[in-house]
């Protein structure tokens, strides 16, 4: 067990006009999660400290927050990797509801814009649609997204243009466009080819750096860009 000073940015809309810092001193074992520390603060020291949490092992995406300057999951951040003075803020890029809880409504709504469901008008066979392991492999990384919002909130293009779809929604578009069973590539491309869409990605890689599932999001967005160019050329050539 080592002592830590957790400096947490707090805001209660019913009381505060501005956010303010509060420091909590706790001890954590090296393999404890930062989330365990936050839970201990809430349970033992200050019941008003507010944050989201659920699965506590990196699959639900609830506890995304900005930890020492980087969007991360509190349940995947171990004490042994934290400096003694650790700064915890709400997930960067989203309006704050209270303390470490941010409003993700807009984030989820953008996801809905890319037609996030399999579209295939051909009547399905009696059994499964066939898909080779290689074809499945192509979408394997993209389907592991847990929609924690870390990537979009960390994207400088998104900081400048809040209407930008953002890496997460583009990754979702990839997930369906590159699914060999899907038949709506053109319609979906149309949904992401606008001034707040695909070309807003300037290949900065912040999204890749923060993704807790280690998805190479920029790689997927680049694949979409190549596809969009090919389609554009094809249309121009008639």
């Amino acid at each position: 067990m080592r002592p830590y000073r957790l400096k947490i940015l707090r805001f209660d809309p019913s009381k505060d006009s501005n956010p303010h810092w509060q420091v909590y001193q706790i001890r954590m074992g090296e393999y404890e999660r930062l989330l365990d520390g936050l839970i201990r603060i809430k349970g033992e020291i200050d019941g008003t400290l507010t944050f989201r949490r659920s699965c506590a092992h990196g699959i639900c995406g609830s506890c995304a927050m900005k930890i020492n300057g980087k969007n991360s999951l509190a349940c995947q951040t171990l004490a042994k990797d934290l400096p003694e003075e650790t700064v915890v803020e709400p997930l960067q890029g989203y309006p704050v509801i209270r303390d470490l809880v941010v409003d993700m409504g807009e984030f989820f709504r953008k996801n809905d814009e890319v037609m996030p469901y399999l579209i295939n008008p051909e009547p399905p066979p009696d059994r499964e649609r066939l898909q080779s392991p290689e074809e499945q492999q192509r979408i394997l990384q993209s389907i592991t997204c847990i929609m924690c919002g870390s990537c979009t909130g960390a994207c400088p293009s998104y900081w400048l243009d809040r209407q930008y779809l953002g890496p997460s929604a583009l990754l979702k578009a990839y997930r369906f466009i590159f699914d060999s069973r899907d038949r709506a590539t053109k319609e979906r491309l149309r949904k992401i080819l606008h001034e707040h869409g695909l070309w807003r990605c300037h290949t900065i890689y912040n999204c890749v750096e923060v993704c807790p599932k280690e998805i190479d999001i920029t790689y997927h967005i680049k694949a979409l860009k190549r596809l969009a160019l090919r389609e554009a050329l094809r249309i121009r050539q008639g």
Binding site: L118, P124, E128, Q131, P133, I143, D179
Partner: peptide, 19 residues
Amino acid sequence: VIELEHMGVPFSRTPEGKI
């Protein structure tokens, strides 16, 4: 399971492309 596959669930595949 077949219905879920038709809805788009990305199941892992056999070499022949089945679930």
